Computed example of a mutant assay.
Amino acid sequence: MPEAHRIPVGDATTDAAPTVAAVHHEADSDDWLVWCHGLRSDKAGSYEARCRRASEAGYNAVRFDARGCGESDGEFVDSTLETRLTDLRHVVDYFDPRTYVVFGSSFGGKVAIHAAAEDERVAAVATRAPVTTSEPFEEYRTVVEREGTWTFDTGDRIERRFFDALDRYPFDDVVGELDVPVAIFHGGDDAVVDPADSFAAAARLETDVLVERFAGEGHRFSAAGEQRLRDRLFDWLAWADAHQ
């Protein structure tokens, strides 16, 4: 049965320390898979189904809401690349696996890639439509520079600090640092994150990289595309584990 957790991600010595909501899908193994959702997403929906599949495949699977998202503390405007990297680190430290695989979608893919470059515990990194350039956010940046904030249709906002953090983590920083297997899955009809970005990123990495273009899939995958993604992901993970 999945178990819910509240994990402190700030100064745990104070009563006001923010917490993030996480769910652990347990498996009888020492293998761990941690999932990072996209910019305006959360741990529900496809991540619940992905965790069930991961648990069936023998992975202790953890999905969590970054601060300002879903059931976690904080405001969305406070959620930057740096805070999401911090949240991920606290979640991993809380469960304390010896090694783990990290999977990220879209903006969560950028989180996963940079985490993998920084954390020696990461054994492999898999992504779906990962953000590897700032291009998907340039429209928002233009408005923020002019007006100070961008407001999405949900009322969620981003401000200059979002871009300040984004600029501090260029893809250049991971090119020579990633030394674990990497998988990139990308919808061929993605109109949010250009599939060409994933092929360009893969060409620059100095480690084993699998890139798959899913014909007919957009930034959000269809049910059939999602099923195929899971099948390909766990086939690749079996390969990656065998070649460690």
Results as ranks from 00 to 15, higher is better:
residue 156 D to I: 00
residue 204 R to F: 04
residue 189 D to A: 15
residue 144 V to T: 07
residue 145 E to S: 09
residue 213 R to V: 14
residue 86 T to K: 06
residue 65 D to A: 06
residue 88 L to M: 11
residue 199 F to E: 15
residue 146 R to F: 00
residue 1 M to I: 04
residue 169 Y to E: 03
residue 188 G to E: 06
residue 58 G to L: 02
residue 135 E to P: 00
residue 229 L to S: 05
residue 142 T to F: 09
residue 95 F to N: 07
residue 11 D to L: 01
residue 22 A to H: 03
residue 55 S to H: 05
residue 148 G to A: 11
residue 98 R to H: 07
residue 68 G to I: 08
residue 209 V to P: 07
residue 151 T to A: 09
residue 9 V to Y: 00
residue 24 H to G: 05
residue 127 T to G: 05
residue 116 A to I: 12
residue 133 T to C: 05
residue 207 T to H: 08
residue 135 E to D: 13
residue 115 A to E: 11
residue 199 F to G: 01
residue 51 C to M: 05
residue 31 D to N: 12
residue 26 E to W: 07
residue 143 V to D: 03
residue 210 L to W: 07
residue 155 G to A: 10
residue 3 E to L: 10
residue 18 P to I: 02
residue 32 W to Y: 13
residue 32 W to R: 01
residue 200 A to V: 03
residue 107 F to Y: 14
residue 38 G to S: 13
residue 162 F to I: 06
residue 131 V to H: 01
residue 16 A to Q: 09
residue 215 A to C: 01
residue 232 R to H: 08
residue 34 V to S: 05
residue 206 E to P: 03
residue 50 R to G: 12
residue 201 A to Y: 07
residue 21 A to G: 00
residue 132 T to M: 12
residue 192 V to Q: 12
residue 241 D to S: 11
residue 57 A to W: 00
residue 222 S to Y: 06
residue 112 A to L: 12
residue 132 T to L: 04
residue 6 R to D: 08
residue 17 A to K: 01
residue 160 R to T: 14
residue 12 A to W: 03
residue 10 G to P: 07
residue 230 R to C: 00
residue 226 E to V: 09
residue 79 S to Q: 14
residue 35 W to E: 02
residue 86 T to Q: 07
residue 85 L to A: 03
residue 185 F to S: 10
residue 156 D to Y: 07
residue 88 L to V: 08
residue 157 R to M: 12
residue 106 S to M: 12
residue 211 V to W: 09
residue 193 V to S: 06
residue 226 E to L: 14
residue 38 G to F: 09
residue 49 A to K: 13
residue 206 E to K: 15
residue 101 V to F: 01
residue 39 L to I: 02
residue 73 D to I: 00
residue 7 I to K: 03
residue 126 A to V: 15
residue 154 T to G: 03
residue 43 K to Q: 15
residue 2 P to E: 07
residue 208 D to K: 12
residue 165 A to Q: 11
residue 148 G to Q: 10
residue 131 V to T: 13
residue 153 D to R: 14
residue 128 R to E: 10
residue 209 V to R: 10
residue 141 R to F: 10
residue 26 E to M: 03
residue 152 F to G: 11
residue 180 V to H: 04
residue 163 F to E: 10
residue 173 D to S: 14
residue 234 F to C: 05
residue 34 V to D: 05
residue 100 Y to C: 13
residue 196 A to G: 02
